[in-house]
């Protein structure tokens, strides 16, 4: 398990959204997107809704909130420095990973038609698959290898946190399985390995009292 030694100021999860680079989100900050989610995405903001990067980040923020926000807030109140740092890292990663990145080719039989999927959308897919496993929150997603060349060996590196009481080996195994299945269905990447590192464990007391079953 990774150690965390930073102790930041006395701020809650909302405050640590500040300071992310809006360049990754077509000029919008994660804080803006968070507010937009709060408003129920109404009135509709065409600038955000027409930005794939913003949509990828909104997907991740929505999942994070629906499953974990209450838990993280409770933990932040209990040990603020520890969890503010963790939340900020997740938010930073969501913002960074939402950028389009490299073009990943998809086979086309027509020489005049070129098909690609963006690296950002694949990172979002991996994050969604990992978050969908009960008891896991994805921290960071990375694709290692030259994804622009068909057939090149690609390794997937994912970090996550788990809930106390969950068998972590089983959790990592489940995450690898669903991520692998998603990548096989939606890409033609030659995935040679999927490494899942559980870096944090959330406390049993918080999980059992703050998250409704």
């Amino acid at each position: 398990m990774a150690m965390r030694d930073d102790q930041e100021g006395d701020v809650g999860p909302e405050e640590v959204l500040d300071g992310l680079d809006p360049e990754f989100l077509d000029g919008h900050s994660v804080e803006e997107l968070s507010d937009y989610l709060d408003s129920g995405r109404s009135p509709r903001n065409p600038d955000i809704e027409n930005s794939p990067g913003c949509l990828i980040a909104l997907d991740a923020l929505g999942r994070l909130r629906s499953a974990t926000w209450a838990m993280l807030e409770a933990e932040a109140a209990e040990d603020r420095g520890r969890d503010d740092k963790w939340i900020k890292n997740v938010m930073d990663n969501i913002s960074r990973e939402a950028r389009a990145g490299r073009d990943i080719p998809i086979t086309s039989v027509d020489p005049e038609v070129r098909l690609t999927v963006t690296e950002g959308s694949v990172r979002g897919l991996i994050r969604a698959a990992g978050d969908g496993v009960g008891g896991a929150i994805v921290g960071r997603v990375r694709l290692d290898g030259d994804v622009t060349v068909p057939g090149e060996p690609i390794s997937i590196d994912v970090t996550a946190s788990g809930v106390f009481g969950r068998n972590l080996l089983e959790l990592a195994r489940e995450m690898r399985a669903v991520i692998g299945a998603s990548l096989r269905e939606h890409t033609e990447l030659n995935v040679t390995s999927i490494d899942v590192t559980i870096q944090d464990v959330h406390t049993q007391r918080t999980a059992s009292t703050e998250v409704p079953r």
């Binding site: 794939p52 949509l55 990828i56 997907d59 929505g62 999942r63 629906s66 499953a67 974990t68 838990m71 389009a100 999927v117 963006t118 950002g120 959308s121 694949v122 979002g124 897919l125 969604a128 698959a129 978050d131 969908g132 496993v133 009960g134 008891g135 929150i137 809930v163 106390f164 009481g165 969950r166 068998n167 939606h186 959330h202 999980a207 059992s208 998250v211 079953r213």
Partner: peptide, 15 residues
Amino acid sequence: SHIETPNPAAPSLTP
């Protein structure tokens, strides 16, 4: 540019 995953009911975080 975006793969939209339907947001399922929040998965239980408790074991």
